[in-house]
Write a protein that binds this DNA or RNA. Structure first.
Lengths: 324, 324
DNA sequence: TACAATAAGCTAAACGTTTCGTTCTAATCT
DNA sequence: AGATTAGAACGAAACGTTTAGCTTATTGTA
C-alpha cells in the first residue's frame, strides 16, 4: 500500500501539500495534475485509520436496528443513507435480532469503531444504560422513543394514524372494530392502542376489550389474532392491523376463511404497501412516511455533526391513510 | 477521552505494559489490578483508529447485500455474525438496493474503512471490476456466484432443490407444473430454471415454455405470475415458486381466486417458512439452509483471516424440502 | 518604488496505539 | 556462591495522516 509519502516523493511536493489537495484545498494546476497522476500510478488510497486518528472523525453513521429483515426499516435506512451520502457520510448497519443483550453490545461496538453518530431503533434499553454507552456520540432515535430519555427522535404519529383509520371506519357505520396491535413495551405500539381508545372515547363508543389483540409484530401473530377475532361470539365488522408482517398474516387468515376483504369484514392494513395494493380490490392501509423519516433522521444527524446545539427535537411525522 | 498514557501515569507503569495487558498479555496480579482500577476510574477505551493504524486490522467484516429488507439474508447474516462474534470479529452491513452503481460504491466504502474481509451477495458486478476494487481483501460470495470469478462462495444447491421438488410433484402424477422463477441474471435463479428443465428431461416429460414465468423476486410478480399461469388455456396442476416474496404473492393470488392449495392446485413455496407453515393445511416449501450458509461463510472468512491459502472453495449446501 | 496582502508550499509535531530489542529482578541450577 | 534463565517491565520508534506556524513568491496599492 502506498502512502502519502510516496506521493510526495513521486511529485517532489511536501506531505502538507498532498494532504491539502486530498482535503479539497487549492494547489497549483500543474501540481494538481502531478498529484493526480501519481495517485493513479501508485494506486494510492487514504488510510482510514490514520486519518481518523488525526481528525477524530470517521465520516460514518452507525445504524442499529431490531432486525435486518424489515421492509419498513429497510426503506427508512435507504432514504437516510441517500441523504447522508450526498454530504460525504456513509451509514453502516447492525442489528440485535430482538436480543436485549445484543442491543447493548452492538451499541458499544458502534461507539468503539468511532461512528460519528448513531441512528437507533430501540427496544429494551433504558435511558441510563444508553447514556452511559453512547457518552457524547449524537444519537437519533427512529420509529420509537425511550421513556424519560430526552434526545432527538423521528417517529410517525401513530396515535393520529390509528385515530384517522378508525374514524374512517366509524364513518362507514362500523362500531365493533378489531385491533391487532404490537408489543406494548414498544412506545409506538402503545400509542396505537391509545389512539384506538381515544377515538372510541371521542365518538362515545364503548371499547370491547375482546377486540384488542396484542401480537408480536410477526406474520404468525397476525394470522392467529385475526382468527381469534373472527372466532369471537360477536366478531368485529372491521379489523385494523398495525404493522407489515401482521398484515400479511391477517390477510392470509381472512382469505383462508373465505372472508372477502373488505366486503364481508372491512379492513385496514399497515405499512404493507405491496400486499395491500396487489390484492383485489386493493385494501386501504396506513402508510408511515418511511422516506421522510429517513431523510429527517439524516437531516438531524447532519445538524448535530455540524455542531448544532439546539435542544433535542422530537419529530412526529404524519402517516397517511392510502384511501378509504 | 483518556488514553493509554493516562493509564500509564495513573498506575506508574509503562505504555508497553498497559498495551500488553490490553492485548491479553501476562502482567503481575498486582499490576493487573492497578490497571483495571485505572481503566474503570478513567473510563478508558482503546482507540480504534490508533490500534488499526498500527495493526492494520479492524476486526470487522463487511457485509454487502442487495437489500437490507430480506428475511432470507437477514437470517444468513445473523448466523454469520453470531459465529464471527465468538471469534472477536464483528460484522457491519451495507446494501445497494439493487442499484449497480451503488453496488460498486458500497464495495469501495467497505474497502476504504478497512474491513478485514467482505461477505458479498452480488448482482451486477463483473469479475474484473470486483477484483480491482477489493484488491487483496478476502471476499466470500454468498447465495450467488459471479461468472468467471474464482473465489470462495457459499451457495445453496438450487438445481437439486428444484429437481427434488419437481420429482415430488411428478410422483403425485403432475405433469404440467408451473414455475415462477427469478431474474435470469442471478446465478442461482438460472440454476433453478436449469433444474426445472433437467428434471423434465430425465423423466421424459416435455417442457411447456408457457409454464415458465420469470419474475423479479418481489411480491407483485409472484401474484401476477401465479394469475398468469392460471389464466393459461391449459393451466398447470401444480405450481412451484422460488423465493420468499413471490411465495407470498402467489399464495395471495390463489386465495383470491378461491383456489384451494394444495387440493386444487398443488403448490411448493420457497424460503417462506412463516407463511407456508401458518396456512391451513401447511404448504410444502424448499428451505434453504440459511443458518448453515451463515456459519459456513463465517468459517471461510475466519480461515482466510487466519492466513489460509487454500484454493478458493465453492460450497454448495443442500436445501431441503420441508415435507410433501 | 516600497510595502502590505495574498497565495502556495514547507517543516515538524502530534494523534494513540503496538512492538522490537533491551534491561531489570528474582528464581533455579550446578 | 556464581552462573544461567525466565519473566516482567521498559524505552523508543513506528504506523499514515492532519495542521499550526512559518517561509517564500506573487500581486495589488499608495
Amino acid at each position: 500500500m502506498s502512502t502519502i509519502k510516496d506521493i510526495a516523493r513521486e511529485t517532489g511536493l511536501s506531505l502538507a501539500t498532498i494532504s491539502k489537495y486530498l482535503n479539497g484545498g487549492h494547489v497549483l494546476d500543474q501540481n494538481r495534475e502531478r498529484i493526480e497522476a501519481a495517485i493513479t500510478k501508485l494506486d494510492y488510497k487514504v488510510n482510514y485509520f490514520a486519518r481518523g486518528l488525526k481528525t477524530n472523525r470517521s465520516m460514518t453513521v452507525g445504524v442499529l436496528l431490531p432486525t435486518i429483515s424489515s421492509p419498513f426499516f429497510g426503506r427508512v435506512v435507504a432514504a437516510m443513507d441517500g441523504r447522508l451520502r450526498q454530504c460525504g457520510y456513509h451509514s453502516i448497519v447492525c442489528s440485535y435480532d430482538f436480543d436485549p443483550q445484543l442491543e447493548q453490545e452492538q451499541l458499544r461496538l458502534l461507539v468503539n469503531i468511532n461512528v460519528d453518530a448513531i441512528v437507533f431503533v430501540p427496544q429494551q434499553i433504558d435511558a441510563a444504560t444508553l447514556t452511559s454507552i453512547v457518552q457524547n456520540v449524537p444519537v437519533v432515535l427512529v420509529d420509537r422513543a425511550i421513556p424519560d430519555y430526552r434526545c432527538d427522535a423521528v417517529v410517525a404519529d401513530s396515535l393520529n394514524a390509528i385515530y384517522s383509520a378508525m374514524e374512517a371506519l366509524f364513518r362507514k357505520q362500523h362500531s365493533r372494530i378489531g385491533l391487532i396491535v404490537g408489543p406494548q413495551d414498544i412506545s409506538t405500539a402503545r400509542e396505537r392502542l391509545i389512539g384506538y381508545r381515544r377515538v372510541h372515547e371521542d365518538y362515545h363508543i364503548p371499547v370491547d376489550e375482546e377486540l384488542i389483540q396484542v401480537g408480536n409484530y410477526d406474520l404468525e401473530s397476525g394470522y392467529r389474532l385475526f382468527n381469534a377475532l373472527m372466532d369471537l361470539e360477536q366478531p368485529p365488522s372491521a379489523v385494523c392491523v398495525t404493522n407489515y408482517d401482521m398484515t400479511v398474516g391477517a390477510i392470509t387468515a381472512a382469505h383462508e376463511r373465505g372472508i372477502a376483504l373488505p366486503e364481508q369484514v372491512d379492513f385496514i392494513g399497515f405499512d404493507n404497501i405491496d400486499l395491500c395494493q396487489v390484492v383485489t380490490p386493493p385494501l386501504p392501509f396506513v402508510e408511515q412516511p418511511m422516506d421522510e423519516m429517513g431523510r429527517e433522521a439524516a437531516r438531524i444527524v447532519l445538524q448535530r455533526l455540524d455542531g448544532g446545539k439546539e435542544p433535542p427535537q422530537l419529530l412526529r411525522l404524519k402517516s397517511k391513510l392510502s384511501h378509504v
